[in-house]
Simulated assay, not measured.
Amino acid sequence: MSPLLSRRRFIGVTAAAAGLGLVPFGHAPRAEAHLVTWQGQAMGAVATLQVHHHDRAAAERLVERALAEVRRLEAVFSLHRDDSALSTLNRQGFLIAPPAALVELLSECRRCWELTGGAFDPTVQALWILYRDHFSQPGADPQGPPETALQAALARVGFGQVAFDADRIVLPRRGMGLTLNGIAQGYATDRVVDILRAGGIASSLVDMGELRAIGPRPSGEPWRVGLADPDHPERIGETLDLVDQAVATSGGYGFRFEPEGRFNHLLDPRTGASAGLYRSVTVVMPSAMAADALSTAFSLLPPGDIGQAVQRLGEGQVHLLTASGETIMLQV
C-alpha cells in the first residue's frame, strides 16, 4: 500500500516492515512468514492489525495480547453492549466498585473538561438521545426538537456534577448518562501502543479508530497520513508527517442526524447546538487519547480559546478548516 493513508478511507492501516496497523473483530489471526495479520472491528470502528516480527510466534502473541486488551476495554466502555460497565452505569445511575480503567478514563475526562472550559463533556449522552429520538420519528420537525425538550435534556448535562472514585461512580440526576465515544478509541489506541512497545515493536502505525505512530517508518522516514477533505470525504485534503505522535480529526460530516447536516454528532454541552464553526478540526498530540478528546472539544471553541488551551498544555498542533474555508494552524 502507498505510504499516503486516508484516515477516513482507511481506518485499517498497513504498517510496512515492522509494525502494526489496526481493522473488524471476529477473524482469527493468520501468519504469513513473519507477518501476522488480524482484521475485525474494535471500539465500534473498523480496524486492522499487522505485526511484522523476526519470530512468528512472538508476533502472534502480540496480536492476541492486543486483541485481549481491546476486548477487555469494550466490556468497560461500549454503549453497544448492554452488559458493559458504562451501559450498566447509565441504566442504574451508579456503579459500585467500577473497573479501574473506567475510573482512569473519567479522570482524563475531568482534565479535558477543565482544560476546555467544559466544552469536552461526556454527559452529552442526554443530548444525543434527544436528537436521535427526534429525528427517528416520521415527519420530524427539520428545525429540531422543541425548546422545552432541549432544555430538559440540558438539565441532565454537566460533568462537574458526576462523582467518581475507586469505590463508586454516581450520576446525580435521573436520565443522566455518559458517552466515552470522544475519548475511548484514543485510550484503546494508546493501550495497544503500550503493549506493542513492551513487546519490542519500534516502528508501527496503530489505528483503533484514532491513529498513533510508533517511531518512524522502518525506512527512517516519518509516517505520512492523509486527512479527508471534509467536502469530499473520499478524497485526501491534507497530509501530515508523524513520528511518535497521534492524530485525530473531528468534523460534522462524520455523522449527521438529518440529511441537511444542521444537526451533527458534535454537540455543545453548554447550548445543545451542533458544532458549526469548522469543517474539520485535526489535533496532533503525543497521545491518541488527548488528540481524540481535544479534536472533539476544539470543534466547539473559537481559535483564541483553542490557542490558550494548547499553550497551557505546552505541546501539540491544531489544524482548523473554518466554515468559510480559511485554514488556521496553531501550535506550541
Rank of each mutant, 00 (worst) to 15 (best):
F263M: 14
P222I: 00
W223R: 00
G215M: 01
G237L: 01
L196V: 09
E210V: 12
Q143S: 15
A140G: 13
R173W: 11
L196E: 02
T179P: 08
D190Y: 10
I201L: 08
E210Q: 02
M208G: 12
L150Q: 05
A228M: 13
Y187L: 09
A248M: 04
R256P: 02
D165M: 06
F255E: 13
Y187F: 14
L227P: 02
R256Y: 00
M176S: 00
A155R: 08
F159A: 09
I195W: 00
G160L: 13
P172C: 05
L242G: 12
L205M: 15
D244W: 01
D167P: 04
V170R: 15
L267Q: 13
G237V: 00
W223Q: 01
G220I: 07
G251H: 11
Q185P: 00
R256M: 13
L205R: 07
G186K: 08
R197V: 14
I214P: 09
H232M: 10
D241V: 02
V243R: 15
M208K: 03
S250D: 04
T249H: 06
R256E: 01
E234K: 13
R212N: 03
Y187Q: 04
S219I: 09
R168C: 04
G158T: 03
T179F: 10
T249E: 06
V162L: 10
G139Y: 02
P146G: 11
E260W: 06
Q185D: 00
T249A: 07
G252Y: 12
A166I: 03
W223E: 07
V193A: 12
P142C: 11
A166K: 02
S250W: 01
R174K: 08
D207F: 00
D190V: 02
L154H: 03
P145Q: 07
G209D: 05
Q161D: 12
L196T: 05
V225L: 13
I195F: 02
V157C: 10
L171S: 10
V206N: 01
H232I: 04
T239N: 03
R256V: 10
G261C: 03
Q161G: 14
V162M: 08
R235W: 00
V170H: 11
S219C: 12
E234D: 15
S250R: 13
L227Q: 04
A184W: 06
A228E: 15
R156P: 00
G200H: 02
